[in-house]
């Protein structure tokens, strides 16, 4: 996968498959410390410690149709290739936290990619999800809480195509200004 945002989408799909009703996506960019940290926390069914130990092995999966599960191992590989690592903390019945770290300036770090498209795709598939997205760039933070929009919409579902298209534009504007408002060129360099 070429974008970190695609890995995030993949991991949130895991959380939804684990029955999560709350998901927190947190991205922290720290230029001075040369670090990028992505944390995804869910309240899904969690895993026992034995499963957590094996979970980065591509031949570990909960799937019963075949025996390969690639999602987490692909992100772990991307993190290690960019001077970082991936950690999974989980408790059966409580939920899971996945933390991926990268060296921000590392040559092999994949770009963050289209985070608004990822968030909108998550909400398209899980309109009732209590989704929080918090993105910090060198101490400045943008927070998006889906419930604020869901509350405002009343009976109108958040996954109506017009609402999602509106939200995507809104998130694009907010993230551009979080990254210094430099437009397309600045975005590409991320």
């Amino acid at each position: 996968m070429e974008e970190l945002a695609l890995h995030i989408l993949d991991l949130v799909q895991n959380a939804l498959a684990a029955g999560a009703t709350e998901v927190v996506i947190e991205i922290k960019e720290d230029t001075a410390g040369d670090r990028l940290v992505i944390t995804i926390t869910d309240n899904g069914c969690g895993m026992d410690q034995e499963f957590v130990r094996r979970v980065l092995d591509p031949f570990t999966t909960t799937r019963t149709t075949r025996r390969v599960g690639l999602g987490l191992s692909l992100l772990a590989m991307a993190a290690r290739q960019a001077g970082g690592d991936l950690q999974v903390a989980s408790e059966k019945g409580k939920g899971t936290t996945v933390t991926a770290t990268f060296r921000l300036q590392h040559w092999d770090r994949p770009p963050l990619g289209d985070v608004p498209a990822t968030l909108v795709t998550v909400l398209a598939g899980a309109p009732k999800l209590d989704l929080t997205y918090r993105h910090t760039v060198d101490g400045r933070t943008f927070t998006f809480r889906a419930w604020e929009v869901q509350r405002e919409l009343g009976g109108v579902p958040i996954n109506d195509p017009k609402v999602l298209t509106f939200l995507k534009r809104y998130l694009e504007e907010e993230l551009t200004s979080l990254h210094g408002g430099g437009g397309d060129d600045a975005e590409k360099l991320r």
């Binding site: 929009v149 405002e152 919409l153 009343g154 009976g155 109108v156 109506d160 017009k162 609402v163 509106f166």
Partner: peptide, 9 residues
């Protein structure tokens, strides 16, 4: 968002 809600409603 509120204007859009009315329209979609």
């Amino acid at each position: 968002l509120r204007r859009l809600r009315e329209e979609v409603q």
